[in-house]
């Protein structure tokens, strides 16, 4: 009896082992190491890393670039999340209706998600090109605007990046909303229609509340993505001009692999991790009261 019990125990651990090895090797150990490294100086040549306590954190607090990219990231999140969610709900509502060529429209909306971000950024780079780019040509022909350096002007660079991100993400979120919409029984909408509710009322009183679990899921994903997606910045602006379009993760990359200040980069990474977990926990508590789960 006791022997079989023990063997079961070993058995379960063995089954869990392969997944655990990878999780520890690539997630937990690096996270812990990063945390430890943030208290050490960057090792250089013959000088090994030495413990410097909170010195890196003091530097972070006084670093104007850090606050700049934090502010940029906040603006980037505020610009992308509500816009991409609103857009994805609108698209999902539209392609959920009966319309001719519905699957074609669905596919068209999903295409940005399938394309690699680097390739997408290259296309957008052309759209934004001053003088002969798509935007300048269209706006020039329509409103007679002079040529604008969308990506080169500190005032517009970050917003230009936001537009690309919204375009990229909305189609992906649409898929979740489409699935959620199809799970709402048609009879609910019919019952509301018989009671005399307008399309607008049906959306705000029935559809949108029932989509809340999806909105929670999508918004957490969107928040994480707003700190995680930086591929297009490499192509579009390289963080410039004067860090106007640099985001936190892009700055971490620069510090770690361009300036090779790995100790300070570890500190920045810890700050990013703390921020993300605080946001995720906060969202769960904030939404929990408003979300109806079946």
């Amino acid at each position: 009896m006791r022997v079989t019990f023990k063997r079961d125990w070993i058995h379960s651990w063995l089954l869990l082992l392969p997944a655990m090895v990878f999780l520890f090797a690539f997630t937990h150990i690096p996270a812990v190491t990063t945390f430890i490294n943030s208290f050490y100086s960057t090792p250089r040549g013959r000088r090994p890393a030495k413990f410097i306590g909170l010195e890196n954190y003091e530097r972070l607090w006084d670093d104007p670039v850090f606050w700049k990219v934090m502010f940029n990231n906040l603006w980037f999140a505020l610009g992308t999340i509500p816009l991409s969610i609103a857009l994805s709900i609108a698209m999902a509502l539209w392609v959920n209706d009966k319309l001719a060529g519905r699957s074609l429209v669905r596919m068209a909306y999903f295409t940005p998600t399938v394309l690699p971000l680097i390739a997408v950024a290259n296309i957008w780079l052309f759209f934004y090109t001053p003088g002969f780019g798509l935007f300048d040509q269209v706006f020039g022909a329509l409103f007679g605007w002079s040529s604008t350096n969308w990506l080169g002007d500190p005032a517009t660079a970050l917003n230009a990046v936001i537009v690309v991100t919204v375009w990229k993400e909305a189609g992906f979120f649409m898929i979740f909303y489409l699935a959620a919409l199809q799970a709402i029984p048609v009879s609910l909408v019919e019952a509301a229609r018989i009671e005399g509710a307008s399309r607008w009322t049906i959306f705000w009183r029935i559809t949108f509340p029932l989509l809340m679990p999806t909105t929670l899921f999508v918004s957490i994903n969107a928040v994480i993505n707003s700190f995680r997606l930086v591929d297009h910045i490499f192509i579009l602006t390289d963080g410039g001009p004067d860090n106007a379009s640099s985001l936190l993760l892009f700055y971490i990359y620069e510090v770690a692999f361009r300036f090779w200040e790995t100790g300070y980069a570890a500190t920045l990474t810890v700050a990013l991790l703390l921020l993300l977990s605080a946001l995720a926990i906060g969202q769960f508590f904030f939404f929990d009261r408003k979300v109806h789960y079946k």
């Binding site: 009879s187 019952a191 009671e195 509710a197 509340p209």
Partner: peptide, 28 residues
Amino acid sequence: SSKRDISMVFQSYALFPHLSVAENIIFG
């Protein structure tokens, strides 16, 4: 439907799952 002055009970009842009983009844 809204102009026909009718009410309807569905086979699945079609109650709004996120609204209370009171809100379901007074929806119209």
